[in-house]
Amino acid sequence: MNYAQLLLPDFSLILLGYLLCRFTPLNRAVWQPVESLVYYLLFPVLLFQSIVKSPVDLAATSGLIGAGLLAALSGIALAYSLPWWPVLGRHIDRRDHAASAQVAFRFNSFIGLAIAERLAGGQGVQLIAVLIGVCVPLFNMAAVWPMARHGQQGFVRELLRNPLILATVSGLVANLLGFRIPEWMAPTVSRISASSLALGLMAAGAGMQLGQLARGRSLSVAVLTLRHLVQPLIGLAMARLFGLSPVQTTVLLAFTALPTASTCYVLAARMGYNGAYVAGLVTLSTLLGVVSLPFALGVLR
């Protein structure tokens, strides 16, 4: 299977979003509300629908959940250990590291769901939705922790109000209770879900900017290497350790090779750090996803 060709439509939407934002009147003033619409409404609907569509077999997905959590914890540990690495640690600014370490382990959910659907259809979306549900709270806490002294109060409350967490948890509860979306409502929900993928990918492209990547080159290289090379290798090791099925292995490898979350720079800026530098890392990570996803799915798999 030609994974580069398979992923072309999704990255074409990212490129389209970038071009529209930079070279047409559809600039950031247009795309910022679109990001909010996708994040707070369209995307949670997609997650909820994906989970409740068919019964979740917790026994069958327990291996995937365990592999995903171990891969996540490994990525977090490696990202925060960078200042103590020999030679490299001397070239790392601690404030920049606190803001950018999250780039090494967080992921772009928009791209992840779009790719999972393309790779494995509804089953792929359901599996990656489960990974999102168990990893988003962990990643959010790990991202905020080193910047907490400059952050706002009510961190736990913010986690509990996260729309992705709410949609995933409520979807899992509804699934286990046997709830299904009524037939008369299903077409509307399906259309909302479908629109979230296209708009989410275009919004990811519209948010790209290189900013201040000239500073902190050593840190930039280290963080992006962890995100796009080391994490997929860890994903492969976890898949073998837990004996995952071919579909679960494909989803886990795609999950570990995704570009970083586009909200990394928002969090860094909101908590008093260099948001422009992190925005540059997010942009470069999105571009590197064109390489890391085919590498994970076509070479490692």
Rank of each mutant, 00 (worst) to 15 (best):
A59C: 00
A60D: 12
A60F: 03
S62M: 07
I65L: 12
I65C: 10
I65D: 01
I65K: 07
I65T: 07
G66P: 11
G68Q: 01
L69D: 02
L69W: 10
L69I: 13
L70P: 00
A72N: 13
L73Y: 10
L73R: 03
L73V: 05
S74N: 04
I76T: 00
A77D: 06
A77H: 06
A79E: 07
Y80L: 13
Y80C: 09
P83N: 01
P86G: 01
V87L: 15
L88V: 14
R90S: 15
H91G: 15
I92W: 09
D93I: 08
D93L: 05
D96L: 13
H97E: 10
A99Y: 06
A99E: 07
S100V: 02
Q102P: 14
V103F: 00
A104P: 09
A104G: 03
R106I: 06
R106Y: 07
F107M: 07
F107G: 00
I111W: 00
G112P: 04
L113Y: 10
L113T: 05
I115F: 13
A116K: 02
A116S: 09
E117C: 07
E117M: 09
R118W: 01
R118G: 11
R118V: 01
L119I: 07
L119Q: 08
A120S: 15
G121R: 06
G122N: 13
G122Q: 15
G122D: 14
G122A: 15
Q126Y: 06
L127F: 04
L127Q: 05
L127A: 04
I128N: 10
A129K: 10
V130L: 15
L131A: 06
I132V: 09
V134W: 09
P137D: 10
